[in-house]
Amino acid sequence: MTVTDTVLQDRKIRINRNDLIQKFAALAGLVLLVIAFSLTSDSFLTTSNFVTLALQTTTIAFLGFGATCVIITGGIDLSVGSVLALAGVVAGLAVKDGMPVVVAMTLGVLAGGVCGLINGLIITRMKLPPFIATLGMMMVARGVTLQITGARPVSGLGDAFGVLGNGSLMRMVEEGANGFPKVVFPGIPYPVIVMILLAVAIAVVLMKTTFGRHLYAIGSNEEAARLSGVNVNRTKIGAYVLAGLLAGLCGCVLMSRLVTAQPNEGVAYELDAIASAVIGGTSLVGGIGTISGTVIGAFIIGILRNGLNMNGVSSFIQMITIGLVIIVTVWIDQMRNRR
């Protein structure tokens, strides 16, 4: 949450009051959810559940960061759910081929980047709308994934493959009186650490670098950006490559958690990613959006899932709830912008 705080402070200086209200509204919603679930379930407000929750949220967050960058340019990326499966499978197959895990996962992430590059090239060179280009990529990437695996999970990847997804920092275990190990502190899972680092890094990119500024400029007024000498094509390609790389990383983390490369993983995850960005205040029209908002958006979705699960709410009702949350948050957002 320190990420959110520093980002919030920075925005306070340069962005008008309305943005802050929106930020606090989302943050307040998050807090309300935590309070509500704490009251209804005893096991919600525990360290181990929070660690689980953070771990579950990393998937949405990784994809959400990419979605934020793309949506800020006024684009959309529907392919990330398939791309993460492809990336994970590439990593899995590479390990099967005898490569070290680090190399294999790097290959997986790069595979995601290549998919993003292709998306970017189709959008900027062939001048197809992002919706169409990435819809095509969504199907192609999924098809390739199923083809190269024969639609079968790649298993037997060894313990090393599971470290990224299942390991954690500062895990404290002591031997109990009965001789069984007792977990004192479950540790911070590696994916959560990666998420925090990425949130800071991408927030800095968006707010403090020319690349980030150009993303906003393109989304705000593409022609004005072009006539100001912004290399629009290169910047856009950059956004899609970033989204692809993040999807690739997300795929590797997910498959690592399962210690199996699942070709059917990640179906419809792109929608979670878009939802987290939108709940966090990113405008689908382009030009507006922050990583801090997306972090909040991702956690709202994560906490809803986790909390509803704890309360024994069926996954069907969960879908209904999250759908309504998306509609209501964006509605609030629009109300605020109306004169």
Binding site: R213, H214, A217, S228, G287
Partner: peptide
């Protein structure tokens, strides 16, 4: 249409061509 990113700040518009 072509000159100004109206959704961005005065500052960002002024420096846009010379980041």
């Amino acid at each position: 249409l072509n000159g100004l990113a109206v959704g961005m700040s005065v500052k960002a518009n002024i420096t846009m061509a010379n980041m």
